[in-house]
Design a protein around this nucleic acid. Structure first.
Length: 262
DNA sequence: GCGACAG
DNA sequence: ATCTTGTCGC
C-alpha cells in the first residue's frame, strides 16, 4: 500500500519550523468525524461472526522496535481474531525523538513497512497520539492523512490536553474525555469558539486489577476519519486480555521478533 | 526563566 | 523506545 497524499509524507530533513507548518497542514486536512467503510459495531476479535468474512474490516496494528539508528517497523493485519497478513521493514533513522515531532522520526520507517503490505486495511491502529497533539497532528493523524485511511492513536501516556476527571485508580472499562485545554492549538479557520472544551480524545482504562487499582489508563485519540467517541469504542472492541489492543500487541511482538533475528 | 513533553 | 533478574502475586 502506497501514500495517497505524498505531499504530506514527513521529511526528516525539514527545519523544525517547516515540520510544524507541515503538521498544521496535515491537521487542516484531517477529518475528525466518522468516515469509515465499516460499522464500528462489526469490529471484534471473535473468530466466528454472522457477518461474512469478506465484509469484516481489516484492522492493522503498527508498532516499532529500535536498534541504534535503525527502526524495525511492523504491521500486523487482523480480520476478526485472525492474522491475515504481516509486513515489516528495517529503516535508518535520521533524527532523534523530539516530543511533538515523532512522525518525522518514525513516519518514514512506518511507511516503508506499510509499502510491503499487499492488502489495504480499513483501519490503522498506531502506537502514539493522533489528535491529542500540540498541533492536532500526532503520528496517527499524520499517517492516516498520508494514507487517507481511517486511523486511531493509542498512547500509554498523555502528551497534552486535559482529562476532565482524575484518571487515578479507575475500574476497568472506565473512560473520560480529554479536552483541548492545556496545550492543543486550534486549527486556523477550522476550529472556532470554545475550542478549549473540544474533546480531542479519551483516557480509557482498558485493564485494571480487581482490588489494587494501579494500572494507568490508555490515551486514545482520532487519527483520521474517526471521531473521538468511535475511537474509544474501537479500542474497547479490539481489546483482549492485555492493556494494549490486540493489533498493537501483535505488531509489538512481531517487531521484537524481527529485531531479534536481525 | 520555568515547566512539560507520544516513542 | 531501550538497558535488564529476579521476584511478588494470582
Amino acid at each position: 500500500m502506497r501514500p495517497t497524499r505524498p505531499e504530506f509524507v514527513p521529511d526528516p530533513s525539514l527545519s523544525r519550523a517547516e515540520m510544524e507548518s507541515l503538521q498544521r497542514e496535515v491537521a487542516a486536512a484531517a477529518d475528525f468525524s466518522d468516515d469509515l467503510s465499516f460499522e464500528p459495531a462489526s469490529v471484534s476479535l471473535a473468530t466466528e461472526s454472522l457477518v461474512p468474512a469478506d465484509d469484516r474490516p481489516l484492522v492493522a496494528g503498527v508498532d516499532q522496535a529500535f536498534l541504534d539508528d535503525h527502526a524495525v517497523s511492523a504491521v500486523v493485519v487482523l480480520r476478526g481474531g485472525e492474522v491475515v497478513e504481516r509486513a515489516h521493514a528495517v529503516s535508518e533513522l535520521s533524527i532523534p525523538y523530539i516530543p511533538g515531532l515523532l512522525s518525522f522520526r518514525e513516519g518514514g520507517p512506518i511507511l516503508d513497512a506499510v509499502a510491503e503490505l499487499d492488502c489495504e486495511p480499513d483501519l490503522f491502529v498506531f502506537d502514539g497520539s493522533g489528535r491529542i497533539h500540540f498541533r492536532q497532528a500526532g503520528l496517527a493523524t499524520h499517517m492516516g492523512v498520508v494514507l487517507d485511511t481511517p486511523a486511531i492513536g493509542v498512547a500509554k501516556s498523555l502528551l497534552c490536553g486535559e482529562p476532565r476527571e482524575s484518571v487515578d485508580e479507575r475500574p476497568e472499562g472506565w473512560q473520560t474525555p480529554v479536552v483541548a485545554a492545556d496545550g492543543v492549538e486550534p486549527r486556523a479557520g477550522v476550529d472556532g469558539d470554545g475550542f478549549a472544551e473540544t474533546v480531542v480524545g479519551y483516557a480509557y482504562q482498558s485493564r485494571q486489577y480487581p482490588n489494587s487499582m494501579k494500572i494507568n489508563p490508555l490515551y486514545v485519540s482520532p487519527g483520521h476519519r474517526v471521531s473521538a467517541e468511535t475511537t474509544v469504542e474501537l479500542v474497547a472492541r479490539l481489546g483482549g486480555e492485555y492493556k494494549l489492543p490486540e493489533p498493537t500487541r501483535l505488531a509489538d511482538s512481531y517487531a521484537d521478533e524481527v529485531k531479534r533475528d536481525y
